[in-house]
Simulated assay, not measured.
Amino acid sequence: MVEKIRSVLFFAAFILPITSLLPVAVCAGYECSFLSTETIIAGNLADPLLSEIYTKDFLSSMAESAVLQNINSSMLGGKIIEKNRMSLGYGGGRNQIKPRDFYFQFTELHELPTQGIAASPSLSYAVNLGNAFEKAGEWRKWNLHSQFFPYYLSEKNIPFLKVRNTEVDGRVANLSLNLRYFPFLDQSGNTKGVSFGFGLYHTNQEVSLHAYDRRPTQIRLDGDKRKWLGTNSLDYESKILSSTADLRYSFEIAKMTLYTGLGMMYNHGMTSIKAERVAIISSYLSPDDFLTNPSGIALNVTKELKIREANFYGIFGAQYHWETFGIGIEYLKNIKTESLNVGVHYYF
């Protein structure tokens, strides 16, 4: 049965209505004539089979990890900013739900991570509204945070992706605005550790991977051992608009500020994965013979998911501040995803 399912994914030729999942597989050439009738008919099962591979939970958790990484890139912290602060950091997020077995296990992309991961550097600026507008009173209780850092991906600057002989392309272009309110700020600058935040985040991530097989790899078709040789492409895209609200409580030990809290996010957008495989297949008589009866296959699978969901996340962090410089680390966690950010700060 397992071999039959793989046959369906690799070689069945079929036409399905256009939905959020659009699989297209074509086999051309003399060797394709050896496919059994059962295999061709089983092509109608490709839609539910592929839905079981890239499940809704998997794609939504990939989107959530990208959003958490974007939220973390704001480096909000837990302490009020009295004037201005510039921050440079690096953050990453990952989901904890793995995709099901897929045909890339028989190609050069079998080394891909089994978890969806998002990571990039970030640049953020924060200002106290009272200081910016030269006002006192309630204005001094508000901080405004903004964040943006366009980041272009390559094989050299993605530390979490360990794939050999693979071309990597893409970009991360996240941005955000966040207002924080410290209701108990007094004349001496004491905030009693409580703050509320309200944010808008736009998460835009595109990742493209392309690889070619360095050697033929073995597969089975209708019980016969075959080999195939070709190229592989995998594209991931995530575009999500999020609104957030959070409550944080902080306390100080000397120059160290520790904080924890609870946040809520509502995500609206889309995420998609597109996989393409083009390959030649060997003869059913000889797994090493590609030339006698040249035959090839092409597979194009696109899974797109609309994101409309709300989730809570926990907040844990620490900041160390001395004179005009500081460092901070923040960890966000919910049921399916988690994110960690480390940054350096300059106060002026």
Rank of each mutant, 00 (worst) to 15 (best):
Y236N: 12
T37Y: 05
S122P: 05
L179R: 01
S188R: 12
G269E: 11
P287G: 10
L291C: 02
K274G: 08
R220L: 12
R308Q: 15
F104E: 05
Y151M: 07
G43K: 00
L262C: 06
G170R: 03
N334W: 06
Y249E: 12
N341M: 11
K306M: 14
I40H: 08
P23L: 00
R140Y: 00
T19Y: 07
V8F: 00
R220S: 12
N131H: 13
I307V: 14
G269M: 03
A254T: 08
G137I: 07
S242R: 04
F58H: 05
Y259C: 04
S120A: 15
Y152M: 10
Y331S: 03
A173R: 10
K141S: 13
E38Y: 06
G170A: 05
S61R: 00
D101F: 01
F196Y: 15
G78T: 03
V278G: 07
Y201C: 02
F316Y: 10
R226G: 05
E138H: 06
G199K: 03
S122Y: 09
L112R: 08
T114Q: 13
K306L: 10
I81E: 09
I240R: 02
A126V: 09
I329F: 11
Y236D: 05
P216Y: 07
N204W: 01
Q205N: 15
S242I: 00
N72Q: 11
L129W: 02
P48V: 03
Y54V: 05
V24W: 00
